[in-house]
């Protein structure tokens, strides 16, 4: 804590709290969002592929033109 006299001085950032915490806040919010979307996508892909596999059947799973719709998320 050599740079700061107190925690409130730290949170105040020399009067620039909005700019500093706004920067870090959005950055970490975006990172969190990216991670959430990533894991949602993984779960979603596994679920859709499993459903597709069971629908197509294990013997004919090598068939092409199988009516599988690829994911269409906005972010991913």
């Amino acid at each position: 804590m050599s740079q700061w006299e107190s925690w409130s001085a730290f949170w105040d950032m020399g009067g620039a709290a909005f700019f500093v915490w706004g920067s870090y806040g959005l950055s970490f919010a975006l990172i969190a969002l990216e991670l959430v979307l990533l894991f949602q996508r993984r779960k979603d892909t596994v679920r859709r592929l499993l459903r597709w596999r069971r629908a197509v059947g294990k013997d004919s799973s090598k068939r092409n033109g199988d009516g599988f719709a690829p994911a269409m998320e906005s972010e991913q």
């Binding site: 993984r42 596994v46 596999r53 090598k62 092409n64 994911a71 991913q76």
Partner: peptide
């Protein structure tokens, strides 16, 4: 992490993806 579901989707016709999906399930 992002590559993995993309690979599953593209390789969905192969046996190993089938096994992996069952494992995940």
């Amino acid at each position: 992490w992002r590559v993995r579901p993309m690979i599953l989707e593209r390789e969905r016709h192969t046996e190993w993806v089938g096994a992996e999906l069952e494992r995940q399930a």
